[in-house]
Simulated scan of single mutants.
Amino acid sequence: MTERVVTVWADAPLSRAQERMAEARFSALPVVDRQFSLVGIISLVDVLRHRDDPHATVGDAMTEQVVTVQGATALSIVAHRMRVYGELRLVPVVERGALVGVITRSDLLRARRQGGLLRRAARRLGGTGLSGPLPEAMMPRGAGRVGGRPISSLRVADVMTDGGLVAIPAALALDEAAEVLLSYRFTAVPVVDDGDHLLGIISEADLMAGSSDAGSRTRASTVAGLMTYDVEVVRPQDPLADAEQLLTARGFRVVPVVDDDGVLVGVLSRSDLL
């Protein structure tokens, strides 16, 4: 688990939570009282749902019913709870009511890799390393591209990330896919063919849970065996208000943007809507 936790108070303005998520590039924060007792969780989607209220506080927008674990909880139990609660990516670790840490899907993937279940990638996409400048898709969260403009006046193309995109092939080994997610701190990444046509998307949750057939887990070794094929997409010319529904009402973290030929031309994330 991560012991040095970025938190926010329930009586803080909602803008404070957005600022802290932007600074730390997190998608959610634990909410605590002055005794550091956990009282809720605030996420980017909570911020988006309440951003039209200038007087909203963190307490107004946060989720109060929080799934928690203790430090002695087995990782298999944490992983199971994250699979059961599909939207759950961050689980607070609590001892006697006090917040002592958090654990995320990335932490679980990293633990598996260090334990030898995921090999370090022998090669990188395109033969280049993952170090160096972050692509535009991974610039600090919360900087936002909507600003003060009304959503109803914008198209997807106005705010989508279309530079420095990262996508992977379906034949990529699962351990290499995990490396991409961990190295770039992605929650999901698009899967494309040689012509950049969108084939699907693979997420942290896919890599953690594995695919199943009639209740039996398959022995997938590549992205093709685990990725989601039937993906909701938007087009650059679509109204941004329609895309916002996918990211807030339907709970998607990332939505691929494709042209009329199905070629990946961008991605839209919750942070783009701020």
Rank of each mutant, 00 (worst) to 15 (best):
M1K: 01
T2M: 08
R4Y: 08
V5S: 06
V6R: 13
V6E: 13
T7Y: 14
V8T: 10
V8G: 11
V8A: 09
A10L: 14
P13W: 09
L14Q: 03
L14K: 02
R16E: 14
A17D: 01
E19Q: 12
A22W: 00
E23F: 02
A24F: 01
R25N: 14
P30N: 00
I41P: 00
I42H: 07
I42G: 03
I42Q: 09
L48H: 08
R49M: 07
D52Y: 06
D53M: 08
D53V: 02
P54D: 05
P54N: 01
G59Q: 03
G59D: 01
A61R: 03
M62P: 02
T63H: 02
V66E: 06
T68K: 04
Q70K: 15
A72D: 13
S76W: 05
A79T: 08
H80R: 06
M82N: 03
V84Y: 11
Y85G: 00
Y85K: 06
L88T: 09
L88V: 03
L90T: 15
V93Y: 07
E95L: 09
R96E: 15
R96W: 01
G97T: 02
L99K: 03
L99M: 04
G101A: 10
I103T: 14
T104Q: 09
D107W: 04
L109I: 13
Q114G: 06
G116D: 08
L117A: 12
R119Q: 13
R120P: 07
A121D: 08
L125C: 03
G127C: 11
G127E: 05
G129I: 02
S131L: 10
G132W: 12
L134A: 12
P135F: 11
E136R: 07
E136W: 01
M138Y: 08
R141A: 01
R141D: 00
G142F: 00
G142R: 00
G144L: 00
G144F: 01
R145P: 04
G147P: 00
S152W: 08
L154Q: 02
D158S: 05
M160S: 06
T161C: 05
T161I: 02
G163K: 13
L165H: 10
V166D: 10
A167R: 13
A167Q: 14
P169G: 04
A171T: 14
A171I: 01
L172D: 10
L172M: 13
D175P: 00
E176Y: 01
V180R: 11
V180Y: 09
V180G: 08
Y184Q: 06
T187L: 12
V189N: 03
D193R: 09
G195R: 15
G195W: 05
L199H: 06
I201L: 06
I201V: 05
M208F: 02
S212E: 12
D213A: 13
A214E: 11
G215L: 11
R219Q: 09
R219D: 09
S221E: 14
T222N: 10
V223A: 11
G225P: 07
Y229S: 15
Y229F: 13
D230N: 15
D230M: 12
V233F: 04
E244P: 00
L246Q: 09
L246H: 10
T248A: 15
A249H: 09
R250W: 01
F252M: 14
V254C: 09
V257T: 05
D259N: 15
D260L: 05
G266H: 11
L268M: 04
L268S: 01
L268A: 05
R270S: 01
S271G: 05
L273C: 02
